[in-house]
Design a binder for these strands. Structure first.
Lengths: 331, 331
DNA sequence: TTGAAAGCGGTACCAT
DNA sequence: ATGGTACCGCTTTCAA
């Protein structure tokens, strides 16, 4: 049987209160007694009962994380960083991965007493949750939220800036026939990247070679490039909505014996694993996932600690990473 | 303030015992009273306090999962499946990702009262934990464990079989100059796959063209292939230790204008995301991640439920997935 | 069928 | 500096 705080108290001939005190470093305890308690704890291999502490203290030191998929380098990194940051503050991570927004487990995490707070990582239909969370007054933070108008604590990256920088880079290389192959319209990030892209081109006095919309999938990039090739009309540079699309484009060109960046410059987004592993290494726009994960934890814990609902928004700038897949336009 | 079971009892004019009974579907409650309770719960938006339940019941309905990285399709899928299976049984998932075996958060999950059980997903130095877990008598299951000799409940795949099947496939295609580019020796899986590969070749009266050892990385496959090309001595087929190595090989060949499978057959392992997305689609060996995740949960919950330590081992057979990257040897 | 009361293992207020 | 005790919210005997 596991030792309780009473066992410890009995063992060292002191009261549970004193034991509790040394456990929590609170109040004054005579050094001699402190040692006795510590020894007793050691001898009995005692560790406080989490549920009992939660019940007495009114909080769990558990933070919930809700997300839809783990298959994304950016998400993985964020999760990792959240995990690390929480551990540093002595919190635990409860994870709920569910692509089905309405599924049961997702909601179960939202009990106010299960978790001290919640992080919502790029959740579609985030409004569904925000309303509930507010009603139950559970502290929460949104990462990469879809709407920017509601007043909720959130951490996001400037996708407009990312798209803008990507286009600028291509323009600075002398390209004029530039296409954008982007993801689904319903993502705010998609729309923002596109808007940045378009603005940059406009400033350069250009209009896009094409703007094609589809999924964030290798296959979509592949098919798009193939259809360009079939039509015989190719851009000289393309801004892909993410690295997977970019890789798909490179893949299709390679099959036709066309090299990147010689035949076409390609820039991706997200700096996924393969972006820096597969030749040609991809020029891409990296989101500072580490900072994002950390900010979200700090924001959340600040809320929990202060009880303040001060709706702060932290925005990070993405970073252009220039590698092999973009090059100056050949005259 | 959140409603407690006392509020509910008061609201419906019954005792907390009765409320508890309808909550847990235990004991007999008059249908009329049952309705009253249900209505009160509804009216007060009551949900039981998790910590209080845990304290009273002696368990948490939380299962911990310890792993070292999320960046792996196989792991992701397993995590997803565990998450789903757990939810189905009304359990929650506490995740700890940590590549540092000695890190603090990893150990914190091992408190017997934090979690009802633990799943260790392909953890190096698993012995460290197993000893602790046994000592504290926390139920646990190992997935993809590194040692097969100790008597612990575990779920694994037959890597020997996978390596054997991969080699057989290549042999059946008429290849005789077959190489194996494998991962680090310290993984049991690496050794088993290699053993299966070697045995199959031996049965075919062949010895390998080469066995090269390195990391499970695209770059390793790439470099290996490049060095073959430089030396001018190439195998006609290669069994890569995993898909990343395989993709690296394909990538290197492509750069030299050599096509897969025409110039060389390549078979991977794990059926990672890119295996079925990047042309040529990879022939590979898939581990049934879904089944594995599910088995681990079932094994663990059975242990928890029965209190039995019956050390069961579940072994799954991997499956050969034939796609585009392997072809008959041209005469 | 129902309820009073005793835990479960801590924390914290209030005396001493 | 230390300890008695009420309490956190729920489950579980045991009687009625």
């Amino acid at each position: 049987m596991k030792a309780s705080i009473y066992d410890v108290a009995r063992y060292c001939g002191l009261s549970v209160v004193t034991v509790s005190r040394v456990l929590n470093n609170t109040g004054n305890v005579r050094e001699k007694n402190r040692r006795k308690v510590l020894d007793a704890i050691e001898a009995l291999d005692y560790r406080p009962h989490a549920a009992a502490q939660s019940l007495a203290r009114g909080h769990t030191r558990i933070i919930g994380l809700m997300m839809t998929t783990l298959h994304d380098r950016f998400f993985e990194t964020v999760v990792n960083e959240i995990n690390r940051a929480l551990a540093r503050y002595g919190y635990f991570l409860a994870l709920s991965v569910s692509s089905d927004v309405r599924s049961r487990e997702t909601h179960d995490l939202m009990h106010e007493d299960r978790v001290d707070g919640l992080i919502l990582l790029s959740l579609p239909e985030e409004d569904r949750y925000v309303a509930q969370l507010k009603k139950r007054s559970i502290p929460f933070v949104l990462i990469d939220n879809q709407r920017r108008d509601h007043m909720v604590p959130s951490v996001l990256t400037d996708n407009y800036y990312g798209g803008y920088e990507a286009a600028k880079h291509l323009l600075s290389l002398g390209h004029t026939r530039i296409a954008h192959v982007c993801g689904p319209e319903y993502f705010l990030s998609t729309r923002e990247r596109k808007r940045g892209f378009l603005d940059a081109l406009r400033e350069g006095g250009l209009s896009p070679f094409a703007v094609v919309q589809g999924d964030y999938e290798i296959g979509f990039g592949y098919n798009t490039a193939k259809s360009w090739i079939r039509s015989g009309k190719l851009p000289t540079a393309v801004f892909a909505g993410d690295d997977y699309i970019a890789v798909g484009i490179v893949n299709a060109l390679a099959e036709e014996g066309m090299r990147v960046p010689e035949a076409m410059s390609v820039i991706g987004y997200d700096d996924q694993y393969i972006a820096s592993r597969l030749r040609p290494y991809l020029t891409t726009v990296r989101q500072p996932a580490e900072n994002i994960g950390q900010s979200s934890v700090e924001l959340l814990l600040k809320w929990i600690g202060a009880g303040s609902t001060a709706s702060v928004t932290v925005e990070w700038k993405p970073e252009l990473v220039i590698r092999e897949s973009t090059a100056p336009l050949k005259a």
